[in-house]
Design a protein around this nucleic acid. Structure first.
Lengths: 160, 160
DNA sequence: ATAGATGCAAAGCATTTGCAGATAT
DNA sequence: ATATCTGCAAATGCTTTGCATCTAT
């Protein structure tokens, strides 16, 4: 189910999280909100360490344990996605920020590129339904190497 | 009780491993051979614990550390594949036993089904080349839920 | 008022590593 | 002969958890 989510406002985001927490007898705390905000305001893929660092930089007090506990909630509520790319640390990404996409990982420079292909999505659903299942989620990563001897992305990455 | 016939003979398998080891100044030991054999003769997806258990059952002496070290070699040499399915322990699979395939995971009963789709493979290569990369490998898992309220596979699994 | 959250430190787990003795080549 | 392995146990790194204390509701 490749749903294209449009950009979501902070209010709606907060609303969604509160709704999920209410349903699960959870409390809406400063710490949880801090993690949610960080994931939605900082692009890219954030590791637990990165999230902790950003929180520290902003003088937001969140412990490592709470970051882990909150990330679980965010993933369960569908507000965040967890990725484990081979040879990389686990990272998290805002789920409602952009449309659905999968990832290309360059094995030379580790650059991660996002892609989306409608045919691919359709075929995946067809395969699943052939086996009598409906899609819950999927994991799809393409690991590649640049055609040129030295990955051309390396330089681009350095200047970021 | 292998469910599929090997595409590769034990001799060729051994040959391939020896060749890899020779190139990398590695030694062909009983322990390494034991792990290779277990992966090729037993069930589809084996965890490290499962491999150790099978080795013990056969009175093959291999330590946990050596199993880990050997699995690294097998993956690097292309003789084994490593899979990390969400919510499952890491498992290893013989790489030259069957043709390439990806996996469907039922989130209800955890049953793992293999699939292959030529269009899917072709499209993936097209996408990568569009970004100037050539495929090294890919990770592709479809997580689904049975259409029927209670996953019909659950019972089948229990009787195994 | 109280169920639930937080931080801390300790515990858990899977995996890796240093080292001394063993072994393939 | 010697470079490489192996087993062991200790170490690592990431994640989870128990508990006493706080806080949202």
């Amino acid at each position: 189910m490749p749903q294209f989510a449009s950009k979501i406002s902070n209010e709606e985001l907060e609303e969604r999280f509160k709704e999920y927490l209410y349903k699960h007898n959870g409390k809406f705390t400063h710490e949880r909100m801090a993690v949610l905000r960080i994931i939605y305001e900082d692009d890219e893929h954030l590791s637990v360490d990165a999230i902790l660092q950003i929180a520290r930089d902003r003088d937001l007090s969140v412990s490592r344990a709470t970051v882990y506990r909150t990330l679980d909630l965010l993933v369960q509520s569908g507000l965040a996605k967890k990725h484990q790319f081979d040879g990389h640390e686990t990272v998290f990404e805002a789920a409602l920020k952009e449309g659905h996409h999968d990832h290309i990982v360059c094995v030379d420079c580790n650059k991660i590129t996002e892609f989306f292909d409608g045919d691919l999505e359709r075929i995946q659903n067809e395969i699943l339904s052939k086996y009598g299942l409906v899609m819950v989620k999927h994991t799809h990563q393409l690991y590649g190497r640049c055609i040129r001897p030295n990955c051309p992305e390396k330089e681009a990455l350095k200047t970021r």
